[in-house]
Amino acid sequence: MNTASALRAVYRPALRQQSPICDFLLPSFSHSQSRKQYASVTTSSASPKTEPAPETLNSQSAAKRRRPLSKEQQQFLDSALRVNQAGELAATLIYTHQTLPITRLHPHLRPLMHHMYSQEAGHFSTFNAMLIRHRVRPTAMYPVWTAAASTLGWVTGLMGREAAMACTEAVETEIGGHYNGQVRVLLSWVKEMEEKGEEVGEEMRELVDTLKRIRDEELEHLDEAVGEGAKEARPYELLNRLIRSGCKGAIWISEKV
């Protein structure tokens, strides 16, 4: 215990220092010079009902925001949008590859699978458009996530309805929590802007609305998956843990590269 804290005490300042070695060896892990940092993986399991609802979100004013967002805020949006696109890419692929094995055995699930897929496809194109518009680069792991998500969807699809639903449940829990965390961060900005008397701007308002809508749809999928027997999957605990930690890892990586 003591050794661990002693090591940490040496390691932390070393990271913060701007030495050429750190710059070279730890290119993007050592960006801790900024005053304010947002948690790398922003998740929140708090109920959407308890989130603040700043009044300016509903205002109809078309005034533009004058002050640029801070560097930390821009960085946050940059990685948030990148992660969201990667997440929706994975979701569309998972549903695509699950659909055939599942509907072959359970034709009554066809409308549900189609509904979930088409919503994910809609989210994916929304985030693609945002990436183009805001000049955010897609994740460099794009081919890796494509392969991983296709495999995951296919394997859980072959394992049967319960496993597929358990996969949906695990993925949507992570993604829903992730969106929830993002919405909370954005709402805290809006509140901060309100307190300072700044214009929030159409762009930010739209972004919060979109994220809220998408989060609600993801959580809807979660409920549907649980309703279809996700908890009855055979090694439920194992599947759930495995997929959720995979999602967390993928989110962490996509935020960086």
Binding site: R67, P68, Q74, Q75, D78
Partner: peptide, 9 residues
């Protein structure tokens, strides 16, 4: 680093 590009300012 390349950052989120805003159109409002």
């Amino acid at each position: 680093r390349r950052l989120y590009h805003s159109y409002e300012h």
